[in-house]
């Protein structure tokens, strides 16, 4: 399913003043494409997910999904949130069944479908467990299974692996790629981790800080599976990092002190740094 954003802006009222979170964002995501949106914390990345999901209306501009304007949430676009957002009163199975139950699917067939997706994320043994009994990585697996069980055309992911340790994160990245190739869905993935974006995406959009605008885009035509040490990947990462540093400096200036001066950059910046989260 193709997603088209035309001149999308979002303004929030905050403490009596209005803040422009997103300004004139236009982009097109092709059917089946894996797109990452990369930018420093507080640049409106999550807001863009909420707009596409239909959880919030844009202040200006249009969002089209397969030529139909988005007017509210729809089960063709399901969101995986950073904090998993599982329902604590339901088991893993109950959580994965939830959307199917809302859709009025019969208990037998929704349970069968839920099991299928629970197995797909390797949690078969934990179908009867409650979310509080699971680790952070397992919770995200459930969140992914819960979203995919809806058979969405688009998966919207808002820093889904942001709170996980490096090993779990890498594992889930690989599994997500496997699921994406198998299910042929469109994925819009928000992150502030440069390596994550370049390992995953067909195309990386860089978004600037306040107001959030698409600054550059980086097509990544490297075939998968990609090695993290692939020199082509490292080159792209360094280009993105160079460009992002300006944005981070902007955020720091705004938040800390207008006289902040960016320290000269060393030759290599680790790409696995969580940009912006250290500010």
């Amino acid at each position: 399913m193709a997603i088209v954003l035309e001149g999308v802006s979002k303004r929030f009222a905050q403490n009596g003043q209005s803040v422009d979170v997103l300004q004139d964002v236009s982009l097109t995501i092709a059917d089946g494409e894996f797109v990452c949106l990369l930018g420093p914390s507080g640049c409106g990345k999550s807001t863009l997910v909420y707009l596409i999901a239909g959880l919030e209306p844009p202040t200006a501009g249009r969002i089209l999904v397969d030529d139909h304007p988005v007017t509210g949430p729809g089960t063709d676009r399901v969101v995986v949130f950073q904090e998993a957002a599982l329902f604590p009163w339901l088991t893993v199975l109950g959580n994965v069944e939830f959307g199917l139950k809302m859709a009025g699917i019969s208990p037998a067939s929704r349970q069968a479908r839920a099991y299928e997706f629970i197995k797909l994320v390797h949690l078969g043994r934990f179908a009867q467990a409650y979310p509080h009994q699971l680790s952070g990585g397992m919770k995200q697996r459930v969140a992914i299974a819960r979203a995919l069980a809806m058979h969405p055309k688009i998966l919207l992911m808002d820093e889904p692996f942001g709170a996980l340790d490096a090993q779990t994160r890498q594992l889930l990245q690989q599994e997500l790629l496997g699921l994406w190739e198998r299910l042929k869905i469109t994925i819009f993935f928000v992150t502030h981790n440069v390596r994550e974006a370049t390992v995953l995406a067909d195309k990386v959009y860089e978004i600037s800080a306040r107001p959030g605008q698409i600054k550059r885009q980086y097509p990544i035509a490297i075939p998968r599976p990609r090695s993290e040490h692939d020199p082509r990947l490292l080159t792209i990462q360094q280009r993105i990092l160079g460009s992002l540093e300006e944005e981070i400096a902007k955020v720091v200036k705004e938040q800390v002190d207008a006289e902040y001066i960016l320290a000269p950059r060393g030759p290599v910046v680790p790409a696995d740094r969580n940009l912006g989260s250290h500010i």
């Binding site: 959880l55 599982l86 329902f87 939830f98």
Partner: peptide, 12 residues
């Protein structure tokens, strides 16, 4: 967050 998660899965 729970309300939003529910809404994206058709709970309204």
């Amino acid at each position: 967050l729970l309300l939003q998660a529910g809404r994206t899965m058709g709970a309204r």
